[in-house]
Design a protein around this nucleic acid. Structure first.
Length: 476
DNA sequence: ACTGGCTGCCC
DNA sequence: ATTCTGC
DNA sequence: GCAGAATGGGCAGCCAGT
């Protein structure tokens, strides 16, 4: 569309760090030499997007590219910027749900709290703004309906002592390492939705059948499915093999047993329950469901909760959730009403053997680093890390590592090994992608171990030992 | 029929 | 997921 | 305290290319 070489475009992208901005610059350079542009209308753009969304199968990528090329080549630089942003769903204009909510509230002179509430229930800002047009009463009267999933309530991280105050009692439940789901049933039909509200019913026929058997008609419940074997939870990777599968579902279901755990109910028998206190919802859930309701401890005693937490870890779960007893169900909100308690991260000292150029606000520095363990005198990659750095640290690392670069390959660079990072992680997992066969889950940068030589970094044997230790059967 | 690269979504 | 940053 | 940004491992699905 601009007559540029592929490499130039890639260069531009990595320099600017924002695809929309990069396209805008490329188009503005082009318009200096070419003045022949056809006027682009909103209808043209809409038609192009609709066309693209209907494409699939052989040669569909080529066709999609052709349509985008057509749009961009008749776009002004600014139009190109935002067409690109639309395509990538990446506007970077500082407008999120909160700003949109306030704008709708002001436009139709309604309480922003009601706009938020209606959006929580309906999960559709377009519909909500139409409701706002007819006034506050319309926003107030929104109702949950089966097969219209709502966003999940989310938890923040915390500590037991941080949650417990004077005379505070909380509900304590296991935190399962599986996939979140929302299950709807009405008129004998069942549907299951993922965290992003994708429908996963056909991937989970076994779980759907279990829930169908356990629940009455006309309900919406919230829970987590995990993979189990001999009564113990299986690694999260097993969940991934099942959760969104479309092909060979029966075979996978045969190989990997999934079990649902229910911990909330949002709707039952024509009645919306999200505004009721959590303890009431819990009571309804236990009455409504004959099985699969997650066990719960209600307590205000720190030691008792600690014990429950250690039981959860011993049973192979991630930790516990602490939930305030009088809290409402707030869809999509990561509030302080639900708090997750997980073990502190373990750490390893790893050798920095490579890095990759960053994007966006990291366009001028390395965005991630390749980490290795020592193994028989060699260095073997085990993970990358990209979080935990301050901007200042990223700048410093970029500069100090310049002299160590011994090889470049695309956006990757490789170093003469020198630095040791202390890296926090939640778990060591089997890896099909890393040579050593292990990788870290949720790696994060703690600090540069300037006191350590690479000869003092952790070894592949250390990693294996920790993996085995973590997966040994508990006996006490 | 297979592989490799990329995307989207689970955490 | 985790973490940092600007408001 | 919140929203936004940049990034992790790993899985299935999809498409291109052979």
């Amino acid at each position: 569309m601009t007559g540029r070489r592929r490499e130039d475009v890639i260069d531009q992208l990595s320099r600017v760090g924002d695809a929309g901005a990069a396209v805008e610059e490329l188009l503005s350079q082009k318009s200096q030499t070419s003045f022949f542009t056809v006027e682009l209308t909103l209808a043209d753009i809409m038609a192009g997007l609709v066309e693209i969304s209907g494409m699939e199968g052989g040669r569909s990528q080529r066709e999609k590219i052709r349509v985008i090329q057509r749009l961009l080549s008749s776009a002004s630089p600014l139009e190109g910027h935002y067409i690109t942003a639309i395509l990538l769903e990446d506007f970077r204009i500082g407008v999120g749900d909160g700003n949109l909510r306030d704008a709708i509230a002001q436009a139709f002179t309604v309480d922003p709290k009601l706009v938020e509430y209606a959006n929580q229930v309906r999960n559709d800002m377009g519909e909500v703004s139409v409701l706002a047009l007819s006034g506050e009463e319309a926003l107030r009267s929104v109702r949950l309906v089966p097969f219209h999933p709502v966003r999940m309530m989310l938890a923040r991280q915390g500590t037991i002592s941080g949650v417990l105050g004077e005379g505070v009692r909380v509900a304590v439940e296991y935190k399962y390492d599986g996939a979140r789901f929302q299950f709807h049933k009405q008129n004998g039909t069942c549907r299951m939705y993922s965290r992003r509200l994708e429908e996963v019913t056909s991937a989970m026929p076994d779980v759907v059948a279990l829930l169908d058997g356990a629940l009455p008609d006309d309900v919406i419940v919230d829970g987590e499915v995990i993979a189990v074997q001999d009564g113990r939870p299986m690694p999260f990777q097993m969940v991934l093999r099942r959760f969104r599968r479309k092909h060979n579902v029966a075979q996978a279901a045969d190989a990997i047993t999934m079990v649902p755990n229910l911990f909330d109910i949002l709707y039952y028998n024509q009645e919306m329950l999200i505004d009721r206190p959590f303890i009431e919802r819990r009571e309804i859930l236990t009455k409504v469901s004959s099985r699969y309701v997650t066990p719960q401890l209600v307590s205000g005693k720190e030691e008792e909760i600690e014990d429950y937490y250690h039981d959860a870890l011993d049973a192979g779960h991630e930790g516990v959730m602490l939930k305030l007893l009088d809290s409402r169900y707030t869809p999509g909100v990561r509030g302080k009403d639900w708090v997750k308690i997980k073990p502190e991260a373990d750490t390893l000292d790893l050798v920095v053997t490579g890095a990759e150029w960053g994007e966006g606000k990291r366009a001028q520095v390395f965005g991630s680093f390749l980490l290795s363990v020592r193994s028989n005198g060699r260095l073997v990659p085990i993970s990358r890390v990209a979080t935990g750095f301050s901007d200042e640290q990223l700048n410093w690392l970029f500069q100090t590592l310049q002299d160590d670069i011994i090889r470049k390959d695309g956006k990757m660079v490789y170093f003469e090994p020198r630095l040791v990072f202390e890296i926090g992680y939640s778990e060591i997992q089997k890896s099909p992608n890393y040579e050593g066969g292990y990788a870290l889950r949720f790696p994060r940068f703690i600090e540069v171990r300037e006191d350590k030589d690479i000869k003092e970094a952790n070894t592949a044997e250390d990693v294996e030992e920790r993996y085995i230790l973590a997966h040994r059967p508990v006996n006490n």
